[in-house]
Simulated assay, not measured.
Amino acid sequence: MYRIMQVCPASVQKSMEGLDYFVVEGGRAIEDLLWVVTQLRLCKAEMDQMIKDLSECKQYLKHDFKIHLEEKTDIKDHCMTFSLNDKDLHFRNECCDHQHLSGCPKCLQLSDLLDEIKRRVQLLETENIEDLYDEILFKTSNAIDNIVEWKKHIVRSKNQLRAKNHVISSLDGSKAIVMLDWVVKFLPRKFRQGQTDWFGKRGVNWHIAVCLINGESGFQAMTYVHLFPSPVAQDGFTTASILCDIVSDLSTLKPEITDVSFWSDNAGCYKSTLTLAMIYANLGPILSSYNFSEAQDGKGACDRKASHIKAEIKRYVNEGHNVLDANDMKKAYSHSLTSEVQRKIRVKKKKEAVKCLQL
């Protein structure tokens, strides 16, 4: 018993927030299928085997399936070219240079298991359990659809990650990639805050962009932080103005940069027609590409930098200061920068924006 506890120690489940809703719905679908299996007329051996197979399929989708995906392979479930192929003529990309002659045991296990559960559920229609049958049929069909959508989500995530890695691997002295994100509004904080000050806070809008450059000394990251003292709409016009300002400042600091690629999440302010039209009209030939991450899969350098800034602001508040507006945020972040770090901070009067640039 003690040896078992050393190899498999007990763990405590913890609640989690902000999860990928594809993963959440997929996990809930597995739980629904586990309940459906218990309602089927199965012997104990068959029921235990189905429960075990469902658990293995869940672990496979969470961990191994994304690793097995490749651009081109003879396994149909792992071939992204085949999976992302459009049946219509708009995005048609057929696998002409290879054939799908092999199969993945885990993917086949998942497909066969879902078909078997569906077949067993249909056999219940002949029994006199109409109310229970409708519930089982609904949960089964809904769970299977969610699992399929989870699998599609993983394929799209791997494809968009491959596009991002392709842009980063092609960086040289004349190219740069800029990753963008609107951060959740920052709520003012005081060193000593009463209950009356806690309610009715108005958050500060701020936007973060991380520019990655491959220079002579290796990769170099520059972080642009735009702070707004007054509330602004996070719309296409504001976002496009920020993007153009970033590229303009980047061209001044690094005149050798002639090729810029953008990377952002699927927020409407980034992929709106106004945003794309404005950056194309203002940036012109310097704009090389604009890629979007898969929905619910856009965590990256901007989120890491935002967490660093929040930690520095929290440390600044703990030293006895108040951070109530955008200027205080700029002061708190500048206070944390050492002399070894190059920095450029300026206040933009247009739109009352405060811009903080760290090199």
Rank of each mutant, 00 (worst) to 15 (best):
I309E: 04
A240V: 12
K350L: 08
R304Q: 15
L253V: 12
L276I: 15
V317Y: 03
K351N: 11
I345R: 01
T223F: 00
S248W: 15
M329V: 03
L243W: 11
K305R: 07
K271F: 13
A311Q: 06
A277H: 13
A332W: 10
I345T: 06
E352R: 09
A326M: 12
L276K: 10
V260A: 02
G236F: 02
C302F: 10
C302I: 13
G298N: 08
A311F: 03
E312C: 07
P231D: 00
K271I: 15
C269K: 02
A240I: 13
S334M: 12
S334L: 12
F228C: 05
D303T: 02
S289H: 09
F228L: 07
S339P: 02
C356M: 13
D249M: 12
A311K: 04
T338H: 08
G300H: 10
S251C: 13
K271G: 07
K330Y: 06
D325M: 07
R304M: 14
V347Q: 02
S336P: 05
W263C: 03
G236W: 01
G236Y: 04
P231W: 00
V323W: 08
N266G: 05
F237P: 04
K350H: 10
R315F: 14
Y270M: 09
A281C: 11
E294A: 04
A233P: 02
H226L: 09
L250Q: 06
K254Q: 05
A267I: 11
I309M: 05
M329I: 15
S264H: 14
E256W: 04
A240E: 09
K350S: 08
T275F: 03
Q234W: 00
I286C: 03
E319A: 05
D303L: 06
T238E: 05
D235M: 00
Y224E: 01
T338Q: 08
V225G: 00
L283W: 09
S334T: 15
V323P: 00
E312T: 11
S307E: 13
S289W: 09
